[in-house]
Write a protein that binds this DNA or RNA. Structure first.
Lengths: 209, 209
DNA sequence: GATTATAGACCGACTGGTTGGTCTGTATGA
DNA sequence: TCATACAGACCAACCAGTCGGTCTATAATC
């Protein structure tokens, strides 16, 4: 990969993170990258392709990490811990990518959107798969509806990009630990009797034995 | 409020939800609203003000609901259940507002952004307050770091806008029930001994007695 | 009750500035 | 000599916002 291409990618990433995709013009990108229109369009077909490349490098990385963490562990409990840990850590490594990924993905041109969506679904399947496997084996609470639970997990992690800051009070590893603790607390079975007393009503899904 | 103004609001809401703020022109809005440029600018100072109004009506509603649910209950456990329930339900009532709220808020002009941010922080404080109160009283696990836990709660709920669909498999009330169950499972104290055995390491925050 | 005055609601052609993208030219290295 | 890498002037399209003007309804005046 050429030097200038990398520079453009890094620069535009920062600019998009700060001002959003539509808040940054190609002229601003080339100025900040120390190049020209010619340099930009030599490496990218369009501004839209640039947006796609940012999306793709990020989701490709996440997918690879999740896959790796998934295969080297055996039990669902170990898997979910490893995957969540690697996933949370991504927010430290790829913060600007992620901001763009979640904020601007609906501005992807259809053909690009399709390709990103496929990889994103693949990642989602990893999470769904682990939880599903854990429920089947009895490692995780069987009464929980898979889809809702999995989306809750994805949501709490994904939302990190909205508030995490590198110089914040907790390190990314500490945040990962807390999240894993929270997730295991609602995934792993254990006497729920003492909890039911505190609930205003017994949840609809508890009768699924 | 005038008829046309409402029409413009509803129409643009739908359009923004589908194509994003920058994916919709004022001309498209007026065409879809059956009016003209003149009609539009008679009711709104600018396209930016329209964006602000959408943000404001939504966050004002959420804040009011949360406040109400917060005061009529006494224990932290009851409060968190009520607030989460009302919060989750919002995603059924205000789905387009929410999409715009979370997708386009960084395109708000500074003066508008400031006003929205204030209300959003107010809402965040309600959640933080309840969890903090619960930890002090011993209703909730004291070892959990407040900030991280609260953001996890906010994250899992907020993310609903990305996947919830009215005709989906679970109703909004069912989703709320599941979420409350999950949250109570990690907030309420209970023997964690059996969980620790499944964790790859004891979390850093467990020694805070 | 007829006429006039006034205000608010709305219309739509027009504009000034911006933006993504193109095209021709040049430098460099093989 | 040819291909690649980049420069920067230029362009056509687009878009938020403006502005002079119309239409309607209600109020004021006689």
């Amino acid at each position: 990969m050429s030097r200038l291409r990398s520079t453009i990618l890094e620069t535009s990433l920062q600019l998009f993170d700060q001002h959003g995709f539509h808040g940054v013009t190609v002229n601003q990108i080339v100025a900040a990258s120390g190049t020209s229109k010619g340099g930009f369009y030599h490496h990218f077909q369009s501004k839209d392709e640039l947006l796609f490349v940012i999306h793709d490098t990020f989701i490709t990385y996440v997918l690879k990490e999740a896959g790796a963490a998934n295969v080297i562990h055996t039990s669902p409990t170990a898997k979910i811990q490893a995957v969540i840990h690697s996933f949370v850590k991504v927010f430290d490594l790829y913060k600007p990518h992620i901001s763009v990924f979640y904020q601007e993905s609906n501005y992807l041109k259809p053909e690009y959107e399709e390709r990103i969506k496929r990889k994103r679904d693949e990642f989602k399947d990893v999470i769904f798969g682990i939880i599903h496997e854990g429920q089947k084996s009895g490692d995780f609470r069987k009464e929980l509806p898979l889809e809702v639970t999995a989306m809750a997990v994805l949501g709490m992690v994904n939302w990190i990009y909205k508030w995490y800051q590198q110089d914040g009070r907790y390190s990314i590893d500490e945040i990962a630990e807390v999240y894993i603790d929270l997730i295991l607390h609602f995934l792993l079975p254990g006497s729920s009797d003492h909890l039911i007393r505190h609930m205003s009503k017994v949840p609809f899904f508890y009768d699924i034995k």
